[in-house]
Design a protein around this nucleic acid. Sequence first.
DNA 1: CCTGCCTATGTTAGTGACTAACTTTTGTTA
DNA 2: TAACAAAAGTTAGTCACTAACATAGGCAGG
Lengths: 206, 206
Amino acid sequence: MTASEPPPIGLRARKKAQTRRTIQEQALQLFLAKGYENTTVEEIAAAAGVSHMTFFRHFPTKEAVVETDDYDPMIFQLIAQRPEEEDTLTALHHALAQGLKTVYATDKDALLIRTRLVLKTPALRARVWENQHATEEILTQALTARRPAQSELATRVLTAAALAALTTALTIWVDSEGTEDLPSLVDSAFITLQEHSPPTKAARAE
Amino acid sequence: MTASEPPPIGLRARKKAQTRRTIQEQALQLFLAKGYENTTVEEIAAAAGVSHMTFFRHFPTKEAVVETDDYDPMIFQLIAQRPEEEDTLTALHHALAQGLKTVYATDKDALLIRTRLVLKTPALRARVWENQHATEEILTQALTARRPAQSELATRVLTAAALAALTTALTIWVDSEGTEDLPSLVDSAFITLQEHSPPTKAARAE
DNA sequence: CCTGCCTATGTTAGTGACTAACTTTTGTTA
DNA sequence: TAACAAAAGTTAGTCACTAACATAGGCAGG
């Protein structure tokens, strides 16, 4: 093929991406069908038609196959786009809420299934918090760029608190089996953070 | 049983507790000397003079040997003792600060060594957040008893945020190699949470 | 087109955390 | 002292994950 235009990726790269996708799909399917703990990497590899070494070349651990986490760069962008004068917590609130709203609108069911799987599986639950820490790093960077004067402690505390609020909202959403409205839960969580003693003060969201 | 006095503990129980203590001591020593990843359970068991099965009968996982975590009941108590009228975040702040102050006063060095080990070892870091979640459950219980009217979401968000603040303070303390004053860091972290946009407003602690 | 390189994948043989089943030892109790 | 039960040992596994080496097919340059 004397292709006049070398497409962004060659055949090899496309095949690799496909293999990766297949592994991930088969893994999730097996996890949902038999449970995470009862599924071996060998089984996943077999279902995807590859050897177990190929699995580990695409995903460093069995847990990693559940965490796609392409979100970090998006959140970074969203933070950067927040108006200058907005205070830190509000910026975090709106950036996270906006990012989540996008996912929620298009992939609500997948989000619920995956989040439930993660929160119900001890091994995966532990990992979530690891990821959160990674996200915290990135958010802290973005926020420090916005407010160089703010102390590192303050920035980190607010970031960690914001992510904790987000996770809490997700937890309650999953426990409700998706019947609650996730964006509303997230808004409520952040309002709680901002008013930090709301016995009955549920109020305005935006 | 009609036993006139069943003594608190028999010889057997004491021996068991001793074995447990020995395992934990040897494990920590080995972790510090050779690193967590480079130490096998077999080595720990050998150093403690037991078989690897005994290790697992005392600690469910290799990670568990690092987490003593007798703190939860203490924190529960401290929360319960807070004055009625104190708002939720402040109660969390003072309870956690007070509990930590006790540990800090007596076991500062051990706390630093252990916390550093945990925060620097990926496998252990993940576990911390798991523990945090367990602590969150207990705190949520204690707080719900105090403020039955407060929504579960609000209680959980504030608890999670408080623990995130505490952990952030610990992280910065460890990064400073213990040169910073931990109680002050904790106070600053909570003040940040309460004023949530302190560009230069560092202020009063209590 | 063919030749050599390069990369994704396969094969094999490990290590180490953790479990199950069964046995041995040793406080404890009758 | 005999019988019991709890703590520890022994053995033989499973499974996640790694290292070393082998192969096959995409992708150059000629």
